[in-house]
Amino acid sequence: MTAAPLLELRDVRCDFSVERGFLRARRTLRAVDGVSLALRPGETLGIVGESGCGKSTVANLMLGLIRPSAGAVLLSGTPIDRMDRRAVAQRVQPVFQDPYASLNPRKTVRAIVGLPLSVHGAAADPGDAARRVSAMLDMVGLPRHLADSYPGELSGGQRQRVAIARALVLRPNIVVCDEPTSALDVSVQAQILNLLLDLRRELGLAMVFISHNLAVVEHVAQRVAVMYLGRVVEEATAAALFRAARHPYTQALLLSVLTPEPGRGIPDARLGAGFPDPLAPPPGCSFHPRCPLAEARCAATAPALAGRGEGEGTVACHVAGALNSAMP
């Protein structure tokens, strides 16, 4: 805990009001519930979890695109909702999952990458803007002649490079990547991942890397937070987490990692029951209906985040907590 966090979520809660149909009462969906996370300079924070666990809501909170219902999102100590939209944009930029949807089909690559410059009036003159766009295309490994192409003429990997160029053209110090490779062909995923890693080193970026793919997160992140139903259930350094997962959910996720080895089939994650209805989360520990280790108290009280025992990090589990305290 040496450097001050660049980006910090402090006990953030985020509710959405969900309409369930004509004449039926609106219900509150708690997408994020009491999440605290910190991103330090130059660090990469991985966030993993199933679909619907609130990963993308966390990304939108970090980008200042939605306001927290409670708690605070701090950018270098300043609450993000008290900052000017464009000041936030200069420091945090996103890379989205689907490069087919994240690029405007009616705009050329040049216009897409140049948009942040023109919105911020960052370029001294049109020539300067053109130079910076070209330099950015070089940096993400796109041939300059593609500058006048439309997204429809590019491959998935090329499109994601355009999206990365757009995110970096303002030279932000934080990039929030929300499943940046999962919409791409397997052969292209590695290229994009390596590009992100190279850029991270070259530009000294801090990154938030959101993914459901644990193998990728292990490769990229220094610290990992595991989310389940809007809460962080375990957080630790990548090395510690992948060596010895404490939370039963993390353990199940690790078991479910698909390997490209043929003949091994789809692994059984031992998660029997399906993902619970986020509109009516289970009482107590929200994971208990699917947990192999669940006890009576798990259905009654929600566990708080506590020390993991081994090294730094935290875990929210009655049983894992007991295991920790039992260990010397």
Binding site: L63, R85, A89, Q93, P94, F96
Partner: peptide, 17 residues
């Protein structure tokens, strides 16, 4: 609801723009 609109917001585009 498409991501390019979200991207434009994240870049700091004004709503009219």
């Amino acid at each position: 609801s498409r991501a390019f609109v979200t991207a434009a917001r994240a870049v700091g585009c004004s709503t009219p723009r």
